[in-house]
Design a protein around this nucleic acid. Structure first.
Lengths: 139, 139
DNA sequence: AACCCTATTTAAAATCGTTCTAAACTGCTT
DNA sequence: AAGCAGTTTAGAACGATTTTAAATAGGGTT
């Protein structure tokens, strides 16, 4: 009933965006609000389009894509690609792993240290290991 | 110089396709030849379109997609999706893992037992573990 | 070999997710 | 308030993949 109250985190998001030299526009703040308030999320551009629409926020799908890509570039999000050729964005940018349910296309985070990955093979000549992703596919 | 000699594996491929109730058509045999003769491969539909074209084999891209999907459905191929929203098909259907070079979009197989995956977390309620994919992203 | 039935192939259109374009708008500095 | 660069936008364009409906080709039967 206190929805007049200004969103407590809006100023934080403004600061956050400025840190990355992104102007805190209405649209970017709206998406930051959806992405960075609650618990970690795995969302597609289309999902966010629906969420903004449902909240009465007017913004074009192109802006959603632009923003997600910018957030990804500065490290606020991580990109994940799965079976269906839809790009998902993970608000958890820590090194971690995932359960994946192909039925629902839902991802569940697995903390990094919940999986012990010892004895990794050496990277091929001329390469380094940048990251190790474990995806546990569920049925 | 013996290219008149009938492809020694064509009969094997014919048998293989019949096992899965797929008619051994000219197109499917051509793709089986490209896929299942040499060492394991990771190919996209577009790559196969080029290869068939270069060999003078006439077949539509739709057929390549149809065939790859059919082969996948019966278990002759495995699908892999990476950063670029292109579907790759892996002729190695054993449980194994991959190096991935994002620069070239190339995959390199890692034998299953080259990575020790102990202490996997339990699958969420109502689910089983179907498969575990490890992707070592290179730089 | 001719016939038939169904599976398969095909070109073309359609679809889907995503990016690009060029014009309008807006945050920020002066 | 003015101006400029950064941002948003609608719509077109794009690339990968699927669908459509019509033509073709396996493979069995006569």
């Amino acid at each position: 009933m206190l929805d007049q109250k200004p969103n407590k985190t809006e100023d934080q998001h403004t600061d956050l965006l400025r840190q990355f030299h992104l102007r805190p526009t209405r649209q970017r703040l709206a998406l930051a609000d959806l992405l960075f308030n609650g618990p970690c999320r795995h969302v597609s551009a289309e999902q966010l389009r629906l969420e903004t629409k449902n909240k009465g926020i007017n913004m074009s799908l192109a802006t959603i894509y632009n923003t997600l890509n910018q957030f990804t570039k500065v490290g606020l999000l991580h990109e994940i690609n799965l079976d269906n050729n839809v790009t998902y964005f993970d608000t958890n940018t820590d090194h971690h792993h995932h359960f994946f349910d192909p039925k629902t296309n839902k991802l569940i985070d697995i903390p990094r240290d919940a999986i012990s990955l010892n004895a990794l093979p050496d990277a091929p000549d001329g390469h380094d290991v940048e990251r190790v992703d474990v995806i546990i596919r569920l049925s």
